[in-house]
Design a protein around this nucleic acid. Structure first.
Length: 277
DNA sequence: AAACATTCCTGCACGC
DNA sequence: TGCGTGCAGGAATGTT
């Protein structure tokens, strides 16, 4: 679920609902996430204000008072919900409410993650830029830094499938499995194509459609494929607008040909055999 | 019951 | 030969 659009939607909602609040206390019920949570996290965040909510790639960056910051990654199945009295838990199994932050207005920020592939890490704000998770990330696709020329250069000589490179966080930050298929459909390039064989024009279309698809998805509040919910517990509305993902055998929205599925780099990929070369 | 929205690690092949 | 890089495959895990 959580690729860049879902994390950005989350960031925007939290910036309105939680920024400026103070964390009164925190409780860690399960610290075995992708990496074990440090024991000091709960005590260290208590009393700190939530100053700003940022994002880099698929990482949510919560700036706290006193020069500290929380780095949050949702993995495959994570969610961070802002709950107050009357919050409908919906699909959230309370057994997977692993970390909870109580805020000064009585609301709670709850990190829920059934598969525990996610990450919560407390660090000094000054250390963020050099953090192992963020160092080495490619350009942000919505910043304009992910240009046609850049992608063209990045693909030269590469034998891996173009979809694999589009999902490589070192090449461009934030594109995951769902949006990679959507971007390549709009660009008219098959996900299986060797990256080194992508033409300059195709690289240009991919670079152009990447921010376009991601922006549209953010506008729709992200994509709910199975269980994703935003911080208010709402599903994303972009799933209705997916043109190829999870549509194997269904007609292409452009030409009517049956959408095909292929495994590329271990990941399920979808494309139109007629529109994508 | 096979598949899965993400990332990290290992091991092999290749080229300089 | 040795080293770095690219790439494939698998692992982590619970749910549907």
């Amino acid at each position: 679920m959580p690729e860049l659009p879902e994390v950005e939607s989350l960031r925007r909602i939290l910036a309105r609902s939680a920024r400026g609040r103070t964390i009164v206390s925190a409780a860690v019920r399960e610290k075995r996430l992708r990496r074990a949570l440090g024991d000091e996290v709960a005590d260290s965040v208590a009393g700190r204000a939530i100053v700003e909510i940022g994002r880099r790639a698929k990482y949510l960056l919560i700036e706290l008072g006193g020069g500290m910051a929380l780095m949050v990654h949702l993995g495959m199945s994570g969610s961070l919900t802002h709950r107050r009295d009357g919050f409908d838990p919906g699909p959230f199994d309370p057994r997977h409410d692993h970390v909870e932050f109580a805020l000064d207005d009585g609301s709670r920020l709850v990190y829920n993650d059934p598969r525990r592939f996610g990450l919560i890490k407390l660090m000094r704000q000054a250390e963020l830029a050099s953090a192992a998770e963020l160092r080495g990330l490619g350009p942000e696709p919505l910043s304009g830094d992910f240009s046609a020329e850049y992608f063209w250069r990045a693909t030269r000589g590469r034998k891996a499938a173009v979809k694999t490179l589009l999902m490589d966080q070192r090449i461009v930050a934030g594109v995951g499995n769902i949006y990679a298929s959507e971007i390549l459909f709009r660009a008219g390039v098959r996900p299986t194509r060797r990256a080194g064989r992508v033409t300059r024009a195709e690289a240009g279309r991919i670079a152009a459609h990447t921010p376009a698809v991601l922006s549209e998805a953010i506008g729709g509040g992200g994509t709910t494929f199975r269980s994703y919910r935003d911080s208010r517990g709402q599903p994303g509305r972009f799933a209705k607008r997916l043109q190829v993902y999870d549509r194997e055998g269904k007609p292409c929205v452009t030409c009517g040909a049956a959408i095909r599925q292929a495994i590329v780099g271990q990941r399920s990929s979808f494309y139109c055999p007629h529109c994508q070369k």
